[in-house]
Simulated assay, not measured.
Amino acid sequence: MKLIKGLVLCLFIIGLSACIGSLTQIKLKVIDQDGQPVKNAEVGMSFMLSQGSNEYDGTTDDKGEATALRFSQFGVIIVVNKEGYYQSKVRTSRGHQKLTMELRKKKKTTAMYAKKLLLPIPKKREVIGFDFEQSDWVSPYGKGNIAHIFFHLSGEYIDYDNNNNELKISFTNAEDGLVKLKKTSTSSEFTFPYQAPLIGYLNTHILEKRLSSNTKTTTTYDSTALGYIFRVNTKLNNEGEVIHANYGKIAGEFFSSTKQNKSQGRENGFVEFTYYYNPTPNDRSLEFDWRQNLFIDLKLNETIREP
């Protein structure tokens, strides 16, 4: 009897071709970054089947809520949008669920130098400066003008199972540095804080990896890192207060390798990272407007569309 009722309901809602899987109800509540309900947000739900999906399109009510009932086999993909907000997206498991999703408001989107970078190291065991605006090493290894950040790579690569490296990251001024962040549970495409902090920057950061076929791998590279916020060009007044600085962020963890690849110009290994540099002094906004990337003519694998 329950099967017959379910089939009738399926036919009524979506038609015979989609009447497979189990009936799944999603009760969704959408809130903003302050925990307040967001009404009139556009909600799309794809209830996944072995072939295709059952779709729901609707909007949240005054309480920020929306409910959908469809047949599904492999969970549900939910996408929430609203003008003036960052998109929020999540994929759920199977079964009835009651979910809350965060739709974060756009506050101060900003033009930045933003780039995904795989950077060959000119020379191992040497401290070398890198210019965020020029996206290049400083002299004598590149055309960079200002050493915003320094890298020092050491270690050896024997083979895939036996290699090690140490990447030391440092800065010019004592008040320059990095603040490391852990990943959060937000479903928003904008995952960083809205603004860079005023304190907490560490001037030196060391990442190590040791891999041997005879011993256990050890590493300080952190796969759970959301990324880093950085501060450079810092100047203080006589009271020790910051009167000038530039801010930005690194998405995810730095990565480095001592593996040689002469055909790609990596005789000494490389460092890889994704960075966003805000060139406006004292502007702590971390909201990148990808339509205003200050780099032009980037390659496809260097382009960033995430805020």
Score class of each variant (00 low, 15 high):
Ser256Lys: 08
Leu49Met: 10
Pro281Lys: 02
Pro120Thr: 06
Ser285Ala: 09
Val90Gly: 00
Gly200Trp: 07
Thr172Tyr: 12
Thr220Ile: 06
Ser50Arg: 11
Gly248Phe: 08
Leu23Pro: 07
His244Glu: 12
Phe190Ala: 07
Lys115Phe: 03
Gly21Phe: 07
Leu16Val: 13
Val127Cys: 01
Asn203Val: 02
Lys299Ala: 15
Asn164Ser: 14
Val30Gln: 07
Ile304Asp: 07
Thr59Met: 12
Lys89Ile: 13
Asp32Val: 12
Glu42Leu: 14
Gln264Cys: 00
Glu166Gln: 15
Leu181Ser: 06
Tyr56Phe: 15
Ile304Ala: 05
Gly269Ser: 06
Tyr56Leu: 07
Ile128Tyr: 05
Ser212Trp: 04
Phe130Ser: 03
Tyr194Asp: 13
Met45Cys: 13
Thr215Lys: 14
Ala18Tyr: 15
Lys235Ser: 09
Leu198Lys: 15
Gln97Gly: 09
Pro140Ala: 03
Tyr113Trp: 08
Asp61Lys: 06
Ile13Pro: 00
Asp176Thr: 07
Arg210Asn: 15
Leu226Glu: 04
Asn165Ser: 07
Lys107Glu: 13
Thr303His: 10
Glu102Ala: 01
Tyr85Gly: 08
Thr274Asp: 13
Asp289Ser: 07
Gln260Tyr: 02
Arg70Thr: 03
Thr109Trp: 01
Phe230Ser: 04
Leu298Val: 08
Val232Asn: 05
Ser263Ile: 14
Ile243Thr: 13
Lys180Phe: 02
Gln97Met: 11
Asp131His: 10
Ile4Ser: 12
Ile169Phe: 03
Leu202Met: 09
Ser53Trp: 12
Tyr56Lys: 09
Gly252Val: 03
Ala41Glu: 08
Gly227Asn: 08
Gly227Lys: 05
Gly240Gln: 10
Phe74Leu: 14
Pro307Asn: 03
Met45Trp: 09
Leu16Gln: 12
Asp61Pro: 10
Arg94Gly: 00
Lys27Asp: 15
Ser263Val: 13
Asn165Val: 00
Leu181Tyr: 14
Thr60Ser: 06
Leu167His: 03
Asn233Tyr: 01
Lys209Gln: 15
Ser53Asp: 12
Asn246Arg: 15
Asn54Glu: 04
